[in-house]
Amino acid sequence: MAVNQYKIRKLLKQVLFAGLVLIIVIPVLFPLYFVLISSFKNMAQVYLMPPKLIRFQPILDNYIYIFKTQHYGTYITNSAIVAVASTALSLLLGVPAAYVIARYKMGKANTAILTARLLPNISILLPYYFIFSKLRMIDTFAVLIISHMVLSMPLIVWIMTGFFQDIPIELEEAAIVDGCSRQRCFKDIILPISTPGLVTCSTLSFLGSWNNFQFALILSGEKTRTLPVSLQYFVSGADIRWGRMLAATIVVIVPTIVLTMILQKYIVQGMTVGAVKG
């Protein structure tokens, strides 16, 4: 009898806990599912309440429209070019800097980076617009890449400094005693064991650029329009072409969802650097 009661209580607890987890998961998944299915519906179906959640006739018109009539293929390429190039260049400049900041304990540099991360982007955007329109560089990939580097570099240096600090210094000291130069030691010993950190900060930098709206809004144009900027053109006054806009939204968010599913562990690591350690 007592054993039975214990079992029932345990089962009850598990059911309750599963309920709690569902309360957390459903508010995230249901909106995403709703947007996904709405992107396969026409205007009338989108507006139909109660909504048809499972059995409806999916149509591809919205997707055909955004790729054929609009230039979503080009926008995807533009976004990818800017995200990949700004990440690569930020790594090139930021990772060595992070290494010496960690090794030589350059505390001031660290404070400067934190300040740069907390800075309101818009307070540097106005001068950018001014300078780059004088240089006739608005609507070029160069200006988008440079501006996104300003956002990703502090992030990369911040994450990698934390990562390098945790690598025991003895590892290098032995090599240096053996006559290895510091830069070779960095290239041959430190970088290979830093892959997890590099994956973390590259992912976050790529996503930050892919999602960036504010800089691209001012600094891009018809030739270099990126995905987030393209989204706003579906809204004109009160009239929103939902189906098409949601298809475009799906195009913007699917890569980020896929990356998150593959690299969750690394992303979580990057998000907690500095926040917990203090």
Partner: peptide, 8 residues
């Protein structure tokens, strides 16, 4: 949600 573009 955190990883998605705020505009989206």
């Amino acid at each position: 949600p955190y990883m998605m573009a705020p505009i989206a």
